[in-house]
Structure formats: C-alpha cells, structure tokens
C-alpha cells in the first residue's frame, strides 16, 4: 500500500511519462479539409417545401428577466447526414440584409454519419425607442430573410437549401 506522498509521486511520473511518450502531435486536428456528405433536412420542415417567401415568419419575442430587448429566435436545423467522405462541414445561416442582423453562421464539422442539430444564436432587437447618434431601432414590419444550408469543404460546396423567409419585427 502506497502512502499519500508516494501515490502522488507515482501518478505525477505516470502523467509526465505519458505526456512525452504520446509526442507533440497527439491531438486530433480539427481543421477543415476536403470532402463531401449527403444531407437530409428533418427540421425546419418548410426548408424543403416550395411555399412562398413570407409564409414562414420568424417573429421576435420579448426578452425576459428585465432585458428590454426582444429576441429573434431561429428554428434549429436538424439533419440526417450520410455518405461522409473526408472532413467537410455543415453551414447554416439566416441573413436579414435590411436589418444588419448577425445570427451566425454556425459551422459544424461532420465527423461521420448520423443526426446533427445546429442552432443559430438568438438575435436581440432593441426596444423601439433605442437611439444613439445614427443608430436607431428598426421599424416594425416584415423583412426578408435568407436561410442558407450547405455542405462545404476545400473541394467545393453543395447547397442543401437556400430560400427566403419573412422575419417579423413586432412592436
């Protein structure tokens, strides 16, 4: 039976030994490489449908816990991925050009087949009376947003979905 001091010394020696033995390039690289994958969108379902541009309106919810901002919450993207070769990544973005909103994009490395879920950041919209010099809160109304889903790598990109949606700023 080792006493307290000895067990610490043995453990420290083991860790240091392993550190040296495993060498300088042990960690798995995460850099984007070449590759492709097949993607089947499960949600949001309207990404696959051929409906008109303003049917699927994202609206802003009031902020909670004393945040006077409201929030534009994009639906999570859920996909089934198959036939992965190399190391491609999945790209998901919602852009609202007229509002200069920044929800993402989010990019996720596809390490293998399976179900992936990507979430865009919630975007805060200032209260109607916010004003600082030339910065102003957007007027209420429905703005055009563009949702993009694609698989990309150094060897190219495949667009999975690219369509417009209505984004409602409510006051």
């Amino acid at each position: 039976m080792l006493d307290g001091a000895d067990s610490s010394v043995v453990a420290a020696a083991l860790i240091l030994l392993a550190l040296v033995v495993l060498g300088p390039s042990w960690a798995t690289p995460t850099a984007l490489g070449d590759g492709t994958a097949e993607v089947d969108v499960l949600a949001p379902t309207w990404l696959d449908s051929g409906e008109g541009p303003t049917d699927h309106v994202l609206r802003d919810d009031p902020g909670r816990f004393g945040t006077d901002a409201s929030y534009l919450r994009s639906p999570p993207l859920v996909v089934d991925v198959s036939n992965v070769s190399g190391s491609p990544e999945l790209y998901y973005d919602l852009d609202v050009p007229a509002l200069d909103l920044d929800t993402g994009p989010v990019e996720r490395r596809l390490s293998g087949p399976g179900r992936y879920r990507l979430e865009l950041a919630d975007v805060a919209v200032p209260p109607a009376d916010y004003r600082y010099r030339d910065v102003e809160a957007p007027d209420s109304g429905v703005y055009t947003g563009i949702v993009t889903v694609r698989v990309q790598s150094f060897s190219g990109q495949t667009v999975v979905a690219n369509r417009t949606v209505g984004v409602r700023i409510a006051r």
Binding site: S8, A11, A12, I15, L16, A18, L19, V20, L22, G23, P24, S25, W26, A27
Partner: peptide, 17 residues
C-alpha cells in the same frame, strides 16, 4: 516535445494531484 492540448491536461492533473 509534447502536444499542447495534452500539456494543458497534464498541468491540470498535476495541480489536482
């Protein structure tokens, strides 16, 4: 000589020890 990510893990383990 050593991998940076492992070095960080080792440093934490040694501090815990």
């Amino acid at each position: 000589l050593v991998d940076l990510r492992l070095l960080l893990a080792a440093g934490w383990s040694l501090a815990l020890l």
